[in-house]
């Protein structure tokens, strides 16, 4: 399957329904790439015409901004807004809560106004509108899964229900961790921590969070952010549980349940 870039759509003189903003993690990180592939599969199954920016996509500037480099952030933002506006993009779906927050909340002040969806919101809409068909209850049904709230989705943007509603639609039993929803414990990656060693402490944040996830006894930890995904997987490896328990993005779970 070939995924057309916006340049290719433009060359054909057509406008796709949406732009899938892939983000750095889903572009380059092997585990997060699965999320991108799952989403592409779901979109095409639903008959959605979508494009990507390919090599024209750049970092939104989020990690630079959170680290304190506002200058670099503004450079990246203005560059991306130029690209997006040049293609006349109006709808963006992204699989990264950090890209989501930046595109949705922080680009308008710089002249970038788009309708931005996080993939959990968009997938829930597809399910609700029956644009994708899900498998009937299988033996996998009623398997328990715990959902890890991403800070930038949950506290940041109030998206707590869409991911959980999807898991319910997949007939999975959601078991909550000790800290969830607005009390959710961070995975430890935000604020540009992903790109540096953690400061000195008693325990790593991702290990603490993974312990909470393991305490639910679920065999699957559902994530909605590529960085949470990495942090939790590292936490599982640290606990020696990576063979018993899996971390999966909500998009991967949906793709697995497609009829």
């Amino acid at each position: 399957m070939h995924i057309p870039t916006m340049a290719e759509w433009q060359a054909k003189g057509e406008m796709p329904e949406l732009l899938y903003w892939v983000g750095c993690a889903a572009s380059f990180d092997a585990r997060a790439q699965r999320t991108a592939r799952a989403l592409a599969t779901i979109f095409s199954r639903a008959g959605i015409r979508f494009g990507i920016l390919g090599n024209e996509e750049s970092c939104t500037g989020d990690p630079a901004r959170r680290a304190g480099h506002e200058f670099l952030f503004q450079m990246m933002a203005l560059k991306n807004i130029q690209t997006l506006n040049q293609y006349g993009i109006h709808t963006i779906v992204t699989s990264c809560p950090h890209c989501f927050n930046t595109l949705k909340n922080e680009y308008p002040a710089l002249g970038g106004h788009y309708q931005v969806w996080h993939h959990t919101q968009y997938l829930y809409r597809l399910i609700r509108e029956k644009r994708i068909q899900l498998k009937p209850v299988s033996q996998a049904a009623l398997q328990s899964v715990t959902y890890h709230d991403s800070c930038y989705l949950g506290r940041g943007n109030g998206i707590y229900d869409a991911p959980r509603d999807i898991l319910q639609a997949l007939q999975l039993k959601v078991v909550e961790m000790a800290h969830h929803r607005s009390r959710g414990l961070c995975c430890g990656a935000g604020g540009a921590q992903m790109w540096k060693e953690e400061e000195k402490g008693n325990i790593r944040v991702n290990i603490a969070r993974t312990q909470e996830a393991l305490a639910t006894g679920s065999s699957t930890i559902a994530a909605a952010c590529p960085f949470c995904h990495t942090m939790l997987f590292d936490g599982l490896k640290h606990a020696g549980k990576e063979d018993e328990v899996q971390v999966k993005d909500i998009a991967e779970l949906v793709a697995e349940h497609l009829a």
């Binding site: 592939r37 990690p63 630079a64 540009a192």
Partner: peptide, 25 residues
């Protein structure tokens, strides 16, 4: 990370031309 964002458009040192490789599979 800053240098990488500035030069490669990504916080990791991967070139922009590899951005769509996830779709190859």
């Amino acid at each position: 990370m800053f240098t990488s964002i500035e030069n490669n458009g990504a916080p990791w040192a991967f070139p922009p031309d590899e951005r769509a490789q996830w779709a190859a599979e």
